[in-house]
Amino acid sequence: MSANLLSIRNVGKHFGGLHVLHDVSFEVPAGCIYGLIGPNGAGKTTVFNLVTGLLAPSSGSIDFRGESLLGLAPHRITQRGVARTFQNIRIFKEMDLLENVMVGRHEHLKYGGAGLFFNTRAYRAAERRARERALELLTWVGLAHKADMLADNLSYGDQRKLEFARALATEPKLLLLDEPVAGMNPAEKTVLMEEIRNIRERGYGVFMIEHDMRFVMGVCDRIAVLNFGRIIAEGTPDEVRNNPEVIEAYLGKEDAA
């Protein structure tokens, strides 16, 4: 198996005549926090939608742990070990927090219809384990005391944390985070930075889209910069920070007077 968790090669995507991504290639190594940045409308969320199977690329290939993800349904990709959170939070609002996270355990509950109907010992044990694991994850994001609250009643920051716990419940090998610190205060950002590092220590790969430069530069090992659907720079935070093309994309061109 290659050391790269995720390989995106020559990926293009167009919606009719609108070209969103051109020839995008980069590799997310295992045990790494990888950032994807770029101005609004650069195509970052489209990259996530391609990786998770919500969209199919027009060209190119996407490999996860050496196997192609092309043509797989989104739930199959999740089962292979890719989980994500959303830019516009998508929790299950009418369910309580524990149930939300337990939905993430779905694929790990192996009982069949008979076990369910007859309430067998194996069924009860599986449900109990799922419940314990869900509670453990809620504790980890600091929401265990609200486990039986409706998700709809959570604050914005707490909803992000819940989504985080729910994504981790699928036991991913790669976690995609779409703007994880949007709407968080500086204290919460610091906590989240620690948590994301923790995730890496636990052996997960993390791949995030983020606008908060200080956060991205602080937490990521490598960064790719997307502008108008093209990768214009890739490397360590320092390399990216000093790349003239990146500075131009973000700050505009200096007039040659």
Partner: peptide
């Protein structure tokens, strides 16, 4: 509640 989120939680 949310078909897309359900899919990405591994639900067929």
């Amino acid at each position: 509640e949310d078909e897309v989120a359900a899919r990405l939680m591994g639900v067929d």
